[in-house]
Design a protein around this nucleic acid. Structure first.
Length: 245
DNA sequence: TAATCAGACTCATTACTCGC
DNA sequence: GCGAGTAATGAGTCTGATTA
């Protein structure tokens, strides 16, 4: 059966191309906030059957991931977006999911987004620094605030994260930023991180929160912990620095 | 048992055709 | 050009199948 593409379908395909893989739940929050999960699944199934989407499930009770399909890519191109080549199955699915969760948290917040890029987009944008953050984004508050984002599943060694933080502390020449935001799946790493940051004397502002906290209250209302002092604060609280414009 | 998806069914909306 | 009728499709609910 032919599918009549709606404006929402096109936006959805563009977003899938940008994000590589998005889950049914993520697409529901973005494009079907009023619809039931069943209705969302049905629409996505239809788009997949018609070749506009590609869907992948790890096992029958797992949530589906969706990427732009063969018929979706040309439509995405028409919109001026370079279609990101998604692999046959989502690689590092949990990490990809987490990075896209941060993207949704930023984009669904009420604050105007200047830009948001995930690590897979940065190379094409001429990112020239030896360290590649999971996300880079800027919002207008009304001054521009720029953040580097790391999604920490706790599966990577602390050393790897610290290497990145050291590089951020050294500064990215010509790319000033306000803080490094670390979003973790669990808060257990806080103690270790705080200890290491204090031991190394890193001066880069580091704010840590959990994915659950962000999903509950939204990114900019969520409680973060500023390391190494472990001071609780929201992103735009207690920030004495002038916004970069 | 719980989570997810597929299929059947129904209703609403939109696009198209045709007669006036 | 306009309105009525019809077909196609979107969107919703409900139920069942599947499997970790």
């Amino acid at each position: 059966m032919a599918v009549r593409l709606t404006e929402r379908d096109t936006c959805l395909l563009v977003k899938c191309a940008l994000c590589r893989w998005l889950t049914t739940d993520q697409l529901q929050r973005l494009y079907f906030p009023e619809a039931t999960l069943n209705a969302v699944q049905k629409r996505l199934r239809k788009l997949a059957d018609a070749g506009y989407l590609r869907s992948y499930r790890e096992h029958p009770t797992a949530e589906s991931f969706h990427a732009a399909g063969p018929k979706g890519a040309p439509l995405v191109k028409e919109k001026g977006v370079a279609a990101m080549a998604a692999s046959d199955v989502p690689r590092q699915a949990e990490h990809l999911w987490g990075v896209n969760e941060v993207r949704l948290a930023v984009e669904l917040a009420s604050m105007p987004v200047v830009y948001f890029f995930a690590y897979w987009e940065l190379a094409d944008l001429g990112w020239r620094f030896p360290v590649i953050p999971d996300t880079v984004f800027a919002v207008r508050t009304p001054g521009r605030r720029t953040f580097l984002g790391e999604y920490d599943r706790g599966t990577e060694t602390l050393d790897k994260l610290l290497v990145k933080l050291r590089r951020y502390a050294d500064g990215l020449e010509g790319f000033p930023f306000d803080a490094v935001l670390i979003v973790t799946e669990e808060s257990r790493r806080l103690d270790l991180l705080a200890k290491e940051i204090r031991r190394e004397g890193l001066t880069v502002p580091v704010l840590v929160s959990t994915l659950e906290a962000i999903r509950q209250t939204g990114l900019f209302d969520a409680e973060f912990v500023e390391l190494p002092r472990r001071t609780p604060r929201k992103i735009f609280e207690n920030n004495d620095e002038e916004a970069i414009d």
